[in-house]
Structures are given as C-alpha cells and as structure tokens.
Design a protein around this nucleic acid. Structure first.
Length: 380
DNA sequence: AAGACGGGGAT
DNA sequence: ATCCCAGTCTT
C-alpha cells in the first residue's frame, strides 16, 4: 500500500519535471519573473543612483557602470553629480575638468560621449533626455543596453537591458550553450526578453536580472544556487551545468610593448604631454614616453637636449602596466634639467611636451594610472 | 565579426 | 596570471 503511494508520487514528480523541462523559453522567463521580482524587492542594494532615478541620474550611472563594478562607480558618481547636477552643467563643463572627474575610471570616451550627448540634448531635446528607446539609441555612447536601461528604469518603457549579467542569468536559466560573446546571441536574447518580460515592471525586472547576476548567479566562482529564487526553474541548476554555462570563447592574448618613460623636472616645473584625442588614453596627459627601451644617448635625442643641459640623470626601475588589449613593459629615467636652460624659449619649445608648474600638474591635469610608477619621482 | 578601449578586485 | 565587470564604437 505504502509502496503504491510512493510510486505514484515519483510518477507525478516525473511528469512535473518533464513538464518543467518542456517549458518554452518565453514561458520559463515569464514564470521566473514572479519570484525574481519578489526577490528583488527584498534584496535590492541601496545605491546612490537609485535614490532619485531621474533620467539624468540613471543615464550618468549607466554610462559609468559600463564594464565597471558598482563599488568602483559609487564615489565617482557622487562627486560627478555634486559638480554637474544637471544636463546643462554637463554640456557646459570644460573638457579638461571633465577628464579630471573621470580620471581613473577608464574608457575615457564614455565621458566625451556623455558630454556630446548632453550638448545634443540641450540643442535638440530642450535640455532633457529623449523619452523613447529609439531616440536614446541615437545619442553617442548609448547602445542597446544603455538605451534599454534608461528607457525602462527612468521612463518605465518595457524594453530589455541586456548586459553581461543578463546574458549569464538567462543562459543558465535556459541551459543555453550558445556563445554569449557573439553579438548575434545578444540580439536574440533581446528579442526573447522583449516578448517575455513583464510590461508593468520593466525597470525593476531589468534591474532584478542584473542584481541577481551580481549577487547570486555570479560570474567567476560557484553561483549561490541554494539561495536563488529561480532554482526550481533553472535548467542549468537541475542538470548541474552551472560550471559550463555560460559558454564564452576565449579571447586573444594581449600584445606586449616596451616603452621608455621620462620623468623630467626643471626647477619647480615638470614635463607633461597631452596625448592625441584619438586612441588609447585619448586627450589625457602623460609623462613623455616612447616605444622601445632607450639608452641615454637615445633619450637626449628624443628630448632634443644635449648632455650639458642636464643636472641629474638616473635610471628608474622597470614597471609594468596592463591594459585590456596591450601590456606596457616600461623602463624610465629621472632627469633634472639645468634651471637656466629651462628659461630659454627655444629649448622649451623643442621638448616633447610642456613644462608646467609641479603643483598644477597634480591638481589640474588628468594623468592616468599607467604612469603611476614614475610620477612619484616627479612629485615627491 | 573582430579589435580598440581602462582599471581594479576576485580567484 | 586570468577573468570579467550594469558596453560602445570603429574597422
């Protein structure tokens, strides 16, 4: 008798599991949205940009959050908003000040595009951000993710915001083995979510997916499936595939470049150089540097000086800086020029950069971290 | 489709 | 040392 009951129970469970397995993706996401939103209401972090989610606030935060961790963004966001509290202020900010506010955050084109978009908002949209996904998408620096995030969070428009978190969470939920680095997969995901997402709570739904990706369905270590509200619906959890999903093709290794960095002082001044406004670290300042590991003689030639112009010259230790796509292996020289030499206009003009007051160099100009190992010799 | 574009924290 | 982050733009 008892055995029969158990058999029936197992049979029922099997049917239920099979039904669960057969659930089409759209329905699976729709079912997941209920416990997901419930979970989000309890676990949403308190974040500065959530206090008053105006379009401007959401926009600035989303740009800063591109490829950047929440913890890193917080302080930058507060300082940025304190100084540039509305779109007009952003449109009016001096480029140099803008870069200083962004210094250390990386991907500096984000800041330039932010200002460009603000100028366009002032010019074309009456000083406000446009209120449709399509119009947002036209602004510089706003791609499908950011347009979706601003549209849904600030305006309540039911469009998805697919970032790395969402790609990972949904891929696991559906046990999809497609490569999430492929643009085509992201597009499919956006179409799927457009159909499956709740039309009423779009902003919360999008944020909930990202939040659960950041806190539970995490990228590197083991996901915390035990505390996941979606574990009953998650096919990767059921088939123990969270180790292999999401699938990502390995990326190419970065190239290595040798460079020589020069810490040049002359009296109370130091030598800095403005980088071109395209390419790596565009528009930021740097210590003069050039490709290759230079000997002393090559350094004189590079600086356009001769040996008798120099008061002190010493070799500095090697240093390394890693960007995402290139690695700099640097060597350096500290050079103190004779003060009287620095007073000659001709000699100053031939330098690869400009001599500026030491105190100014630190407070006014954005000097990226790549030169950290060598700026110390100049300023301290 | 592939590469450029930063910096830092976790493993 | 490697991964990867609330991605976008250019080639």
């Amino acid at each position: 008798m008892e055995e029969q009951i158990l058999d029936q129970l197992y049979a029922d469970m099997e049917v239920l599991e099979k039904e669960n397995d057969m659930l089409p993706p759209v329905k699976r996401i729709k079912e997941a949205s209920v416990p997901l939103l419930q979970w989000y209401r309890r676990h949403a972090r308190t974040l500065p940009w959530r206090e008053s989610p105006t379009p401007y606030h959401v926009w600035v935060s989303e740009i800063m959050l591109q490829q950047t961790r929440v913890e890193a963004v917080k302080a930058y966001y507060e300082r940025f908003l304190a100084e540039l509290s509305d779109i007009q202020a952003l449109a009016d900010v001096k480029d140099e000040r803008l870069m200083k506010l962004w210094e250390g955050l990386g991907y500096y084109n984000r800041a330039r595009n932010l200002k460009r978009a603000a100028e366009e908002a002032v010019l074309t949209y009456g000083g406000k951000l446009p209120d449709s996904y399509e119009e947002l998408l036209k602004l510089p620096g706003i791609g499908s993710y950011t347009a979706g995030a601003v549209a849904s969070i600030a305006y309540g428009i039911p469009v998805p915001a697919v970032d790395g978190n969402v790609l990972r969470v949904i891929s696991r939920l559906l046990a999809s083995t497609e490569d999430i680095l492929k643009p085509s997969l992201k597009k499919k995901m956006e179409e799927l979510l457009t159909e499956a997402m709740p039309k009423e709570n779009a902003g919360d739904f999008n944020q909930a997916l990202m939040e659960i990706g950041a806190l539970v369905c995490i990228p590197n270590g083991q996901p915390h499936c035990g505390e996941c509200p979606l574990r009953g619906l998650c096919l990767s959890n059921r088939y123990q595939k969270t180790d292999s999903i999401p699938v990502k093709t390995p990326k190419k290794s970065r190239r290595v470049q040798e460079r020589t960095v020069l810490a040049v002082a002359c009296g109370s001044e130091v030598l800095i150089h403005k980088r071109p406004d395209k390419g790596l670290l565009a528009g930021l300042y740097e210590l003069p540097n050039t490709e290759g590991h230079l000997e002393k003689g090559q350094v004189y030639a590079y600086l356009g000086i001769s040996e008798e112009d120099i008061l002190v010259m010493e070799r500095l230790p090697e240093a390394k800086h890693i960007f995402s796509h290139v690695e700099w292996r640097m060597t350096g020289y500290y050079i103190k020029l004779k003060e009287e030499w620095g007073k000659l206009r001709d000699s100053r003009d031939n330098l690869p950069g400009e001599l500026v007051d030491k105190a100014d160099a630190e407070s006014r100009y954005a000097l990226p971290g790549a030169f950290k190992a060598y700026v110390g010799y100049l300023f301290h």
